[in-house]
């Protein structure tokens, strides 16, 4: 039984432009899967459909056995009810809240008691190595630190799946390398199911259990990094993964 499932998922914009077509994928619990492809290939749209930020117009999306979207049966679970964590490319750390308030927000929305919130936020800040910075405002943080706050916020409510949308593209090369290792380590430590969107083949190959290569809204090839490197489906994949 798959943990996250896309069945014949497609998205057509009102104007008739198709951005995702016949997308089929099963992700198991605890797996780290990357969507890799050039910009405009539909990888971000697929991720946003999983989050509920976009509606798929065809097919079925399920998370942990629950169907979260099935347009044919008029099922659509809004993003706030999906228990999905997400880290955005621009971090989206709220500038009017300090670090603690940012990370505590999902727990506040879940109406957790104050003590529990405090406890879990501090624990999560420790996981992302941000202890002691609770009172800081985002404007006093570096890009890398904001990234960690976003990560902690995405993880604090124990999401069923963590989504990362090009999270490292705004960091410099050195920091990017460290974050790659840290994210992978946190994922294994917490046994997270992760979907990671990137256009950088190094990120995809070094972090993922499996890679999904996309182009023009279509899924081209799925496999472990070694499989794909050894047997690229076509010239496009070979060129992209090299």
């Amino acid at each position: 039984m798959s943990y996250v499932g896309f069945k014949k998922v497609g998205k057509v914009f009102p104007g008739g432009i198709r951005v995702v077509d016949q997308f089929n994928l099963e992700i198991s619990e605890g797996e780290f899967v990357s969507f890799l492809g050039p910009s405009g290939c539909g990888k971000t749209t697929s991720l946003r459909m999983l989050a509920g930020l976009e509606k798929n117009t065809e097919g079925v999306i399920s998370i942990a056995g629950d169907i979260v979207s099935d347009p044919e049966r008029h099922i659509f679970v809004p993003p706030e009810k999906r228990r999905v964590g997400m880290v955005f490319q621009s971090y989206a750390v709220w500038p009017h809240m300090n670090v603690f308030e940012n990370v505590a927000y999902p727990l506040k929305m879940a109406n957790r008691p104050k003590d529990e919130i405090r406890d879990r936020v501090l624990k999560m800040l420790a996981v992302v190595e941000m202890q002691g910075l609770e009172e800081r405002k985002p404007s006093q943080l570096s890009g890398g630190q904001q990234q960690r706050v976003a990560l902690a916020r995405g993880l604090v409510m124990q999401p069923r799946v963590l989504l990362l949308d090009e999270p490292l593209s705004n960091l410099d090369a050195k920091l990017r390398e460290k974050m790659r290792r840290d994210i992978r380590q946190i994922q294994q430590q917490l046994k997270l199911t992760v979907v990671y969107v990137t256009h950088d083949q190094i990120e995809a190959t070094t972090m993922s259990d499996r890679i999904v290569i996309m182009r023009g809204g279509k899924l081209i090839q799925v496999g472990t990094p070694t499989e794909i490197k050894a047997k690229p489906a076509d010239d496009f994949v070979a060129d992209f993964i090299r």
Binding site: L53, M86, F88, Q89, A92, W94, H96
Partner: peptide, 27 residues
Amino acid sequence: IDSSLEEAARLSGAPPWRVFCDVSLPL
């Protein structure tokens, strides 16, 4: 406003009206 600020609140479990009060309005 970077719309991902509001989307992040949605994914944190906030319904649209709470997103408006907690994120959009302060910004």
